[in-house]
Every structure is written in structure tokens, then in C-alpha cells.
């Protein structure tokens, strides 16, 4: 798991938005979201010490 990866893909998304390339920006935002969800599974699937 590469922690800095979503920062790189989000930077690409923001850069394309700045340069006026909307579709590329949206595409890289979706890549960032996919990595985010994967990283959430990696970091958030242990049980919590509380009752819900």
C-alpha cells in the first residue's frame, strides 16, 4: 500500500482542472476515490472497542 499515491493522483486531477481539461480531471478524481476506498479497507476494518 503506497500512502502517497492518492496525493499524487489528486494532484494530477487538480492540475488538469487548472489547465482546463475537465474530463481528465474527473478521471483522476475517480482514480483517487478508488484508491481512497481501498485504503479505507486497509485501515478501517479492525473492530472498534464500542457497542453500536
Amino acid at each position: 500500500m503506497i500512502m502517497m499515491l492518492p496525493f499524487v493522483t489528486s494532484l494530477l486531477s487538480a492540475w488538469f482542472a487548472w489547465r482546463g481539461r475537465r474530463d481528465a480531471s474527473i478521471g483522476w478524481w475517480f482514480v483517487t476515490l478508488a484508491i481512497y476506498i481501498a485504503w479505507c479497507f486497509y485501515h478501517m476494518t479492525s473492530s472498534l472497542n464500542i457497542s453500536l
Binding site: 496525493f7 486531477s13 482542472a17 483517487t32
Partner: peptide, 13 residues
């Protein structure tokens, strides 16, 4: 932090 950045991308768009 990544989530804040993703929010910022929507606002930048």
C-alpha cells in the same frame, strides 16, 4: 487530508 483535497478539486472545477 486526501478527502479535503478531493473536496477542493470539486470546488476548483
Amino acid at each position: 487530508r486526501v478527502a479535503f483535497i478531493m473536496v477542493g478539486i470539486g470546488l476548483l472545477m
